[in-house]
């Protein structure tokens, strides 16, 4: 430990101490990658997180320093430092933090040399461009453009960059002119350390639809059990009565018990049977 503390200049010493203080103060310490986020957007993200999380941008070496000094399990965070890491501190649980960070993701225009995270498709139809050199630029980028009725029109929908391909300068230029934003930008969580446990991003992605469906299923199961086992509750009493009445009616009709409430049902049934026999008689 002394090895680390010895030779740091005061400002670095202060940074390390601040990291350590936050790590002790907050339940969750997360490592996020902020690569590619423009300064303006970073401001917005900080604002969005204010009140629920603290974002700390510092050098990777100082992060390593701080956790190494703290030692113990938290030092494991250092194994995940990669690219432009920043620290995030919060008392939220890691699933919530992950969701919050996902919500800060926005789409941005591609810069030359960036790898496309998805297939980029240019839709067919008119553009806002007046006729001009733009047509040639589009065509050079492999986009089927033409001038129709005094307007630049894309003749057919075409996938111009596949997922994982590098977006070259020409392509980046026309995509931005077409206002196509293929790049996800935001703070992506690399690891979260929360109350002694590490959480990987892949375990933190929650399928809310599945939870919703399970809630529906659970509510249905409870309803079924309440009705089928005849455990009346305020919610199910009406349904149970309905079931009882239907069963009584079934018995009344099946056994031809001539009671006022069901005599019409019995007539209906005999009529149906008669019609079935009549149909046969008429056929023969």
């Amino acid at each position: 430990m002394a090895l680390y503390t010895a030779h740091l200049p005061q400002w670095k010493r202060d940074e390390v101490e601040e990291i350590k203080r936050h790590a002790e103060e907050y339940k969750l310490v997360g490592l996020v990658d902020f690569q590619g986020i423009p300064a303006s957007q970073m401001q917005q993200m900080r604002r969005n997180l204010r009140g629920s999380a603290v974002l700390k941008m510092t050098r990777n070496t100082l992060i390593e320093h701080a956790f190494a000094e703290m030692g113990g399990e938290i030092e494991g965070i250092n194994n995940h430092i990669e690219g432009h890491s920043a620290l995030i501190f919060t008392n939220e649980n890691p699933f919530r933090l992950y969701k919050k960070l996902q919500e800060t993701m926005t789409k941005m225009a591609a810069k030359p040399g960036e790898v496309s995270p998805e297939d980029i498709t240019v839709p067919k139809g008119p553009t806002s461009f007046p006729p001009g050199p733009i047509v040639g630029q589009l065509q050079q980028a492999g986009i089927p453009a033409a001038i129709t009725g005094g307007k630049v029109v894309i003749r057919e929908t075409k996938t111009v960059v596949k997922e994982g391909e590098v977006i070259n300068a020409k392509m980046a230029d026309v995509l931005s002119k077409l206002d196509i934003k293929p790049i996800d930008v935001g703070l992506s969580l690399q690891i979260a350390f929360y109350e002694g446990t590490f959480f990987e991003p892949k375990t933190l992605a929650i399928d809310e639809t599945e939870y919703f469906n399970n809630l529906v299923l659970a509510a249905q199961q409870a309803f079924n059990l309440s009705v089928n086992a005849v455990i009346p509750t305020a919610t199910t009493a009406g349904a149970i009565i309905g079931k009882a009445v239907r069963e009584a009616r079934n018995l009344g009709v099946e056994a031809a018990i001539y009671e006022k409430d069901i005599v019409e049902l019995i007539i209906g049934r005999t009529q149906r049977e008669s019609l079935a026999v009549k149909a046969i008689v008429e056929e023969n």
């Binding site: 031809a256 005999t270 049977e273």
Partner: peptide, 8 residues
């Protein structure tokens, strides 16, 4: 059901 048929 005979009774109902008779009525019908």
């Amino acid at each position: 059901m005979e009774y109902i048929y008779a009525a019908l």
